[in-house]
Amino acid sequence: MTGTFVAVVGPSGAGKDSVLDVARKRFAADPSVVFPRRIITRPYGPGEDHRAVTIAEFAELAHGGAFALTWRAHGLDYGIGIDVATHVADGAVAVVNVSRTVLADLPQHFPRFAVVRVTVSEEVRRARLTQRGREDHTTVRARLARPDPAPDHAIDLEIVNDGTVEEAGARLAGFVRRLWLGHPASEISIGRTPQKAASRPKVPR
Results as ranks from 00 to 15, higher is better:
Met1Arg: 14
Thr2Asn: 13
Gly3Pro: 04
Gly3Ser: 09
Phe5Leu: 11
Val6Arg: 09
Val6Gln: 06
Val9Thr: 14
Ser12His: 06
Ala14Lys: 04
Gly15Asp: 10
Lys16Ala: 02
Arg24Ile: 01
Lys25Asp: 13
Asp30Thr: 14
Pro31Leu: 03
Arg37Gly: 00
Arg38Gly: 02
Arg38Asn: 03
Ile40Trp: 02
Arg42Glu: 03
Pro43Ile: 01
Tyr44Cys: 09
Gly45Arg: 15
Pro46Asn: 11
Gly47Thr: 05
Gly47Cys: 06
Val53Pro: 05
Val53Gln: 04
Thr54Lys: 03
Ala56Ile: 03
Glu57Lys: 01
His63Val: 06
Gly64Thr: 10
Gly65Lys: 08
Ala66Ser: 15
Ala66Trp: 07
Trp71Pro: 06
Arg72Gly: 12
Asp77Tyr: 11
Asp77Asn: 15
Gly79Met: 04
Gly79Tyr: 02
Gly81Asp: 15
Asp83Tyr: 01
Asp83Asn: 13
Thr86Tyr: 09
His87Thr: 03
Val88Arg: 02
Asp90Thr: 09
Ala92Tyr: 02
Val93Leu: 05
Val93Pro: 05
Val93Trp: 04
Val102His: 01
His109Met: 13
His109Asp: 02
Phe110Asp: 03
Pro111Arg: 11
Arg112Gly: 01
Ala114Arg: 05
Ala114Trp: 02
Val120Tyr: 01
Ser121Cys: 08
Glu122Thr: 14
Glu122Tyr: 00
Glu123Phe: 05
Arg128Phe: 12
Leu129Ala: 09
Gly133Glu: 12
Thr138Phe: 06
Thr138Gly: 05
Arg141Ser: 14
Arg143Leu: 15
Leu144Gln: 11
Leu144Tyr: 09
His153Asn: 11
Asp156Lys: 11
Asp156Ser: 08
Glu158Met: 10
Ile159Ser: 03
Val160Asn: 13
Asp162Tyr: 10
Asp162Pro: 12
Asp162Trp: 10
Gly163Pro: 12
Gly163Phe: 01
Thr164Asn: 01
Val165Cys: 02
Glu166His: 14
Gly169Asp: 07
Gly169Ile: 04
Gly169Tyr: 05
Gly169Arg: 07
Arg171Asn: 08
Arg171Gln: 15
Phe175Lys: 04
Gly182Asn: 10
Ile188Glu: 08
Ser189Met: 08
Ala198Lys: 13
Ala198Arg: 15
Ser199Trp: 14
Arg200Leu: 10
Val203Tyr: 07
